[in-house]
Design a protein around this nucleic acid. Sequence first.
DNA 1: TTGAAAGCGCTAACAG
DNA 2: CTGTTAGCGCTTTCAA
Lengths: 347, 347
Amino acid sequence: MSKKRVTIHDIAKELNVAASTVSRALQDHPRISLPMRKAVQKLAAKYDYRPNHIATSLRRGRGNTVGVIVPRINRNFFSNVIGGMEEELSSGEQNLIICQTRERYRDEVAAIQTMINARVNAVVMSISIETNKSDHIDLLLEHGIKLYFFDRVMEGVEAGAVMIDDRLGAYLSVRHLLDQGYRKIIHVAGSKRISIYDNRRKGYLEAMTEAGIEVPPDWIIEKPLVIEGGESAFETAMNRSEKPDAMFCSGDFAALGVLQAARKKGLRLPEDLGLTGFANEPFTAFVEPPITTVDQHAGEMGRILAKMCLACCNEEEPSEDFEKIVLKPELIVRKSSLLKESGKTSQ
Amino acid sequence: MSKKRVTIHDIAKELNVAASTVSRALQDHPRISLPMRKAVQKLAAKYDYRPNHIATSLRRGRGNTVGVIVPRINRNFFSNVIGGMEEELSSGEQNLIICQTRERYRDEVAAIQTMINARVNAVVMSISIETNKSDHIDLLLEHGIKLYFFDRVMEGVEAGAVMIDDRLGAYLSVRHLLDQGYRKIIHVAGSKRISIYDNRRKGYLEAMTEAGIEVPPDWIIEKPLVIEGGESAFETAMNRSEKPDAMFCSGDFAALGVLQAARKKGLRLPEDLGLTGFANEPFTAFVEPPITTVDQHAGEMGRILAKMCLACCNEEEPSEDFEKIVLKPELIVRKSSLLKESGKTSQ
DNA sequence: TTGAAAGCGCTAACAG
DNA sequence: CTGTTAGCGCTTTCAA
């Protein structure tokens, strides 16, 4: 196990002082004389002393990690959030441990057990699609672990949250389609049970209503937001007597499915069909035509979440307020929905 | 801080036994009577007892985490590797902590410090582009932390490694292009300093030589493997008197750059120019035409890395052999390089 | 300003 | 089979 690591005792012995003095000197405790502090710090540096965080954690009864639980880490949005968190956390003395749920309730429960066992200070999570009860989450709270949701929140649970304004994102998308002259705009929606999808639905309805367009119920097609879901939604829509002139999808993969199906049918985008997605997946910029979508500021979201975690780790008594932060989404206009030349394109 | 967590002492007191007995019963120690074990375990379950891993770690002098250091977690390849690791690790009692280097040497040093301070059992890493010395890595080894490289390895460092056979991947790609009838195949290469890129270069040369084609030095164009690099490589190639009929890129983003530049010039793929990339980024399947590429089995790689970590955590004396595992890459043939109908397409 | 001592929760000799 | 004891490395009263 290599050369033994140096502890405060080693330093104490060499300086003929008590370990507690070293401990204090190392944290710049004001009641230790300056020369003493200097001496200790110098020796610590010389020996490349590293405080044993494990011991500190045990002593303090609180670890130095925050946990993040996501459905899948290899989803662009999630990995960007995690990336942002790591960036902020690494400069804040906290480590980041991660768990995936693979969209399964069972794995979500396991992930929470892991977090509790790891004695994390805080958990940041986006709940899985399958989850519809919250006893496992209550467990977290019972153990005094701060919880922050992002993206997919669980309604009715007392926790902080960072979200984007999904309603607004959808509203902006649909407004944009309307501005371009589209009228018969179909919404390919996700499960109503998930609040982000429900909010996007509301934004869609709001924009349509505002434009004086009455939305027949079958203009909203609920599908899993994957490529196949998009293809199938396109089928459904095109088999109607009154064909849509645009489709607003609650997810980029569904939008891609629509795009592929539409091209197979020989439709031109944006001329024959306008199309927008949601999430700003990288591929939306690369496909032909590039797909208009909504950016969710994933990195920024991660940084904010991390800051909230750091703040709660540093305060003594856990504050009882559950901070909610709502970020403004950004509409990224691309060719798939651009009938009129507006010059206001972005990447 | 919520209700106090139950410890082995609480259980011991209630059963009028010693804490050590409880500790042993909990780990199914054979020298504890069955009824005793049962009784302890029952009570532990009743109280929802959770062993304090922090205390265990302190006692054992060894933590229960493994660390992973990658350039960026939001790169598809890396997040898939991490995803695979998490999957395996979560069922093995080990937590996963992550750090990013953002391709910077400075951040890589910091990440390693973090890992040392966190007392991880093992570190899995892919070195950053900037890194060209290994003192920080030596530090890791000095602290007795097992190290495993993947993808971008550091030559000359004693460590385990999991890689794909990059030479073979390149060879298969170029062989495929040759089979399709392409002859003047340009290689858009990454930095020779990075072994994976160097190996891909070798695979390219091998396939070409084998086909009896002599490769002029300027058929290899070294560029950063990003979209702009690909565009610029395309420019360079097309400004030559003898134009290429295909391009093999060491990275998918470069291939995308080539694709975009080629389409802008009105070239048809695969008819006027064959194209292949490397990494199987998701977008390669979605662009028009879909790009032939090489899959690196990222998830599998992560699972193997995790298993190696688990194995090394469980053995008493650190074994001194540095296991190298080489995975076979898989050629994913798509339209961008498919002149002849072979029926052997895959997604 | 510094030291002594206790203890966070757990494990592992060593006894019995 | 079970108990006693010591201690992992650190922080933090309390006392000097």
